[in-house]
Design a protein around this nucleic acid. Sequence first.
DNA 1: GCAGAGCCTGTAAACGATTACACAGCTTGA
DNA 2: TCAAGCTGTGTAATCGTTTACAGGCTCTGC
Lengths: 345, 345
Amino acid sequence: MTEKIPTIQDVARIAGVSTATVSRVLSAPDMVRARTRERVTDAIESVGFTPNMAAQSLRRRRVKTVLVALPNIGNSFFGPIVDAIERACTERGYDVLIVNRRPDSSDDASLLSYFNSNRADGLLLFDGSTSRSNWSARVGNRELAFPTVNVCELIEGGGLPTVLSDNEGGVEMAIDYLVRMGHRNIGRVAGPEENVLNRQRGLGYAKALKRHGIDPGLQWRHAGPFGFQTGHDAARRFVELADKPSAVFCDADEIAIGFISELHAHGLTCPNDVSVMGFDDIPFAAQSSPPLTTIRQQHKQLGRLAAELLMDMLEGGLQGETAHVVLACELVERQTVRAIAPTQT
Amino acid sequence: MTEKIPTIQDVARIAGVSTATVSRVLSAPDMVRARTRERVTDAIESVGFTPNMAAQSLRRRRVKTVLVALPNIGNSFFGPIVDAIERACTERGYDVLIVNRRPDSSDDASLLSYFNSNRADGLLLFDGSTSRSNWSARVGNRELAFPTVNVCELIEGGGLPTVLSDNEGGVEMAIDYLVRMGHRNIGRVAGPEENVLNRQRGLGYAKALKRHGIDPGLQWRHAGPFGFQTGHDAARRFVELADKPSAVFCDADEIAIGFISELHAHGLTCPNDVSVMGFDDIPFAAQSSPPLTTIRQQHKQLGRLAAELLMDMLEGGLQGETAHVVLACELVERQTVRAIAPTQT
DNA sequence: GCAGAGCCTGTAAACGATTACACAGCTTGA
DNA sequence: TCAAGCTGTGTAATCGTTTACAGGCTCTGC
């Protein structure tokens, strides 16, 4: 019994006007006389008309859709951010298309195709693989026009507008705190080597340590992808260590939580045997046992600002200046860091 | 320097054929002679042509896009499922549109509009508010045609194809296990009252208890939305209890983890003071301290099967039979349940 | 040499909206 | 009375594909 979906023609016929008028009622209401307008709105109402987006996009040359390219939807870090993006977008009438950017399908081409096949007007790109700085070149080549905002991470030299946290400052804050708590032997479990975040956070780590007269080069270090597994691996190496750091800074909460969890499995406890800090403040950080001391990123803000920025770009054309938003981080003190008497090493 | 995006016309001109032929090369290659075909593919290659989806959708009357309506993207339970959906969809050339279904914007109308405005061909609906069984009515009324698959939850009486876990059986499994471990005073922290999952899991709970000669009506119970907060609330009530259950079954891992976390804050520990079980096996369950004993849902499978089913429907038309897939759950034994000597109450 | 049957390919009409342009009807002011 | 200027509306072209239909070509068998 599938009735046909009503078109603008149906509305026009019922209201006794031309399709042009119906269209105008929808997009420029005060261009049409009040009485006519009312007849049209009634007709729209009565048949339940909704403009066909395909037709509209074809004619208008834009789809009011934003593409969100994530490295891994499964990672709980992205949940709140995507949530904020979706909110901001629907508020302004944009749809949100999600694509999981598998590292293997490294084809930026497939992202670009979303643009020139008219499936998305703009792109929110979560990507910081430094190896991918050729993206900008690629873009510069021919399709410069795909409006893109880098979120959370950034592509160095890409020249793209960016919204991210002050990663360097955030880590400095963490290290300062650990030092203040008496730690001077501070290890680090880092993110993937080829990632910008890893570099930025590494910078903050080194800078802060140096400021306190500690040689960053001498500290214990482990690196791996963002995720529990890296925490596990690090913990297994950690327990073997002869000279254990009294504190370990982890580049991500998931890593920190994996680290602590595996530590427990080996009979060590946090913060008694070692203090641990994370980075992100994902929702679980507050729930783990013990609750994780960490550096908070402003997830909601990151998502919302990036989305707003992109939509502004889409609507205002390119504004000359390419924006660069950096959000401050915040120290969240919970229970995985213990104050110790400063030892003379 | 924004060059124009190439159209099928450009390709046709370059290859020296008509647009019809180009179109055929793309959608029915063996309808055109090998030599011509090659000239066309070369032309396509050389200008980097990608069909304009808006035009294609307009003509073909389908957009190859699936709408995913979640109650809350932020909830980490959905991560792996959405991941699986996205994988299955892109494999078959479908895009994934995400919409966060805020309870307040209760308008099913807005979901339907995705359909009749030609923005999505089908819907993966995560929704189990029993109050919403009018959805089916609404659908039956006029827009029956929006192909929909219920995922994880289901709308009772909606008559929609469904993919979900054996919630009842899963909880029975949990209770059987707790009883086997010596528990006979088993509380429950339930999900939101108006949710089907709550009902289904409640059924399993009651059934299993009765089978073991325990009166479900006499057990301690707390209910609230899925999320940490409910766990916290439950814990605060729990610590006040005179006659504490020796075990508590939680309707979701997030609830269980919140419960344990808040218990710790009050000086009680799990599983020494109380055994706790969750449901879902979200990624964090294995990482929390102590690792959570829970009932695993097959997230990947749920997502993939639902997506496949929907796409099959879209491509094969409606198959007469409306499918009803129920996936088995699995008990994951970790460390939040302690064996106790059965007490004679 | 020709009818008939296949193959390929082109022509042109959709799909459902938007919008430049034209124009009808009314004011207004000279 | 008429030119000029508004308003409000309709006409028709357009966006970039797909596809029904028609027709040209080649091949076969007589």
